[in-house]
Amino acid sequence: MKTILHQSNNRGHSNFGWLDSYHSFSFGRYYDPQRMGFGVLRVLNDDHVTGGAGFGTHPHDNMEIVSIPLWGNMAHKDSTGTNGVIKTGDVQIMSAGSGITHSEFNLSKDKDLKFLQIWVMPKERNIKPRYAQQSYDLNYNLNQWQTVVAPDEEQALWINQDAYFTMIKTDRVLQTSYRLKQAANGVYLFVIEGMLKVKEHQLKQRDALGVYEAEEVEMEISKDAYILAIEVPMG
């Protein structure tokens, strides 16, 4: 098993007033040749958007884009005809494919929106753009891993890649493991809240650990934790 540790205080940082963003990988003005991604996971931005602000209409192509609101609600509109709201507890995925335009705004006028924006490079290029979102109640399945994005699972949102997004919330200290679904994949463990221990690595809030050349990752998760596991091909 090989690992790579990304501590929260070593992430890139951009602050535009209306947007305060921390970058796990090179993005925008932040560039680090050692932080160009983890396998096909290319972007993980931890975004805070002030009340009433947001991203105006802009284009994407050939990227799988996952948004996970952590606090607040986000208005979304795109060129597939989607016009709706992504709420805390929802997961959204957009396959940009051959080309899509979209906008995202904080629905509240006076409270911050906090969300994760994650980009995964696609398996097949130039597919027809598509959009989907779904609500997941992790509090209903406490202390259990729940897959929310996958290429082949009925209860998960479909992604154009051999990638899996799995989340867990805890209400007690938990000894558990994550078993990788494909042998050529690695998994990027991101601590949204709480603490996580994997072998000698002690991770706190917003730290991350990439694990590869492993079949299973054993770990200890603290009480009141919220963990995101992003499993991706390493090629």
Rank of each mutant, 00 (worst) to 15 (best):
K128F: 08
V66K: 01
V191P: 04
H13T: 03
N126E: 14
F190K: 10
G235D: 15
S103T: 11
Q155P: 00
G37K: 04
E153A: 02
N15T: 06
M195K: 15
L209N: 01
K181D: 05
K111N: 14
L44M: 10
D152K: 02
M121N: 13
G97E: 03
E64A: 07
P151E: 06
G39Q: 04
K111P: 04
Q175W: 02
H60N: 13
Q34H: 14
G99W: 04
K114F: 14
Q133D: 13
F115M: 15
A183N: 11
A229T: 10
G37H: 05
E154C: 08
D32R: 12
A225E: 08
E218H: 14
N106P: 00
G56F: 07
G235Q: 12
D224P: 09
W145M: 14
A156R: 11
Q134D: 10
W145D: 05
I159N: 01
R11A: 10
K87M: 00
D61V: 01
S222W: 06
D78H: 00
M167N: 02
S177R: 13
S95T: 12
H13F: 15
S135V: 09
N73F: 06
K197A: 13
V43M: 07
P151A: 13
G56D: 14
N106F: 02
V85K: 02
L196A: 02
E218G: 11
P69G: 05
A163S: 15
I65S: 02
D162K: 15
W145H: 14
M195N: 14
L189Q: 04
I168V: 15
S79D: 12
P233V: 06
R172T: 05
L116H: 13
P122Y: 06
G97V: 00
N139T: 14
V85S: 02
I221Q: 10
N141W: 09
S135L: 09
L180G: 12
T170F: 01
H76V: 04
G54P: 05
L157H: 00
